[in-house]
Write a protein that binds this DNA or RNA. Structure first.
Length: 200
DNA sequence: CGCAGGATGGGCT
DNA sequence: GCCCATCCTGCGG
């Protein structure tokens, strides 16, 4: 299966990338073990003009520096002190756009995912951004990692038809004011792995 | 069922 | 100090 290359990640329209990522395969290879899942839910964060983005108003910190890198690297950060959230950095250098991967449908290495998860999970294994990071072994060490290398990457797959995609508002961004209402969340309809609420 | 609460750490006012 | 782009558990009805 072909890896997505830099040109894909550097497209200017971050919502178009978020939309196109649905149905593609997110893969990690750690200690020779492949774990992979179909991307079923994404959210776009549109850089300095998006109040929900860490990089809103051109904010630069040690943490957000990764978002300013050229498209095609991983942006991983710790949320609520517990969960690592995995984002794909998009667009060109100094344009801090990103796509948050919110849910996967497991495909390869499910046994390994369950081991990493280390509880009675089955249904929740990769539904929700904190869960999927844990299942795929994604942590802060992956921050800034290239998505065209051999640790973590995304594989090409058939485009999901528009009538199977549902568009809605993003989760957990009430603080962003009117930007909280932007239609920047993309899910595959009727997929059991979409986080909370299932299906649509 | 549903919902409140806790875990836990970095970055900002 | 306090706010979070979260998730699981345990409690009450």
């Amino acid at each position: 299966m072909a890896k997505l290359q830099t040109a894909f990640y550097q497209q200017k329209d971050v919502t178009a990338i978020a939309r196109q990522l649905l149905g593609k395969i997110l893969v990690t290879a750690i200690d020779g073990v492949r774990t992979a899942g179909i991307i079923v839910e994404t959210e776009a964060y549109a850089g300095i003009n998006d109040k929900a983005s860490h990089a809103w108003n051109n904010r630069r910190t040690k943490r957000t520096a990764t978002m300013y890198m050229p498209g095609g690297v991983a942006y991983v950060y710790l949320c609520y002190g517990i969960h690592y959230l995995f984002n794909v950095v998009t667009s060109v250098e100094n344009t801090p756009h990103a796509v948050l991967i919110r849910a996967l449908e497991p495909v390869d290495g499910i046994g390994m995912m369950k081991m990493r998860y280390n509880n009675k999970a089955g249904a929740q294994l990769t539904a929700g951004p904190g869960n999927l990071s844990k299942a795929l072994g994604i942590n802060s060490g992956m921050n800034g990692e290239s998505l065209t290398g051999n640790k973590i990457w995304i594989e090409q797959a058939a485009q999901i038809n528009d009538n199977l995609v549902s568009v809605s508002t993003r989760v957990g961004v009430q603080y962003a004011g009117e930007d909280a209402y932007l239609p920047y969340r993309f899910c595959i309809k009727n997929n059991n792995w979409v986080s909370k609420g299932k299906g649509l």
